[in-house]
């Protein structure tokens, strides 16, 4: 099994109800699979995704949805940014 830490940043945490959590997935699971699991755990997230894009980073890097998760990976879901 693979354990990953998932962080929900800013507006996204309003829809997940938690700022972060640890999720256990099977070996060989991709980032796309994890996102589907997150959507099952937090159905309200769809309301955000209907209107805004979410950027997903693994250990701070945009690796694409086919990335195979490794034990200890830190995944972050980011809403659109707003500097300045």
């Amino acid at each position: 099994m693979v354990r990953v830490k998932v962080k929900y940043l800013a507006a996204i945490s309003d829809y997940t109800g938690v700022p972060e959590e640890e999720i256990e997935v099977g070996d060989g699971v991709t980032l796309a699979d994890l996102l589907n699991r997150i959507r099952e755990l937090h159905p309200d997230l769809a309301k955000f995704e209907d209107r805004f894009s979410i950027l997903v980073l693994v250990n701070g890097v945009n690796r694409g949805l086919n990335y195979k998760l490794m034990d200890g990976d830190r995944v972050a879901l980011l809403p659109p940014v707003s500097g300045g």
Binding site: P79, P80, V81, G83
Partner: peptide, 30 residues
């Protein structure tokens, strides 16, 4: 570039509620 690239997030507290502000100026009422 600073407005649109770094992961910085802004929550605006105003008299008519709290709004998340996104880089293009779109606001989402909390």
């Amino acid at each position: 570039r600073v407005k649109f690239e770094p992961p910085i997030f802004k929550l605006e507290h105003r008299e008519d509620g709290e709004y998340w502000v996104f880089g293009d100026g779109t606001r989402l009422k909390r």
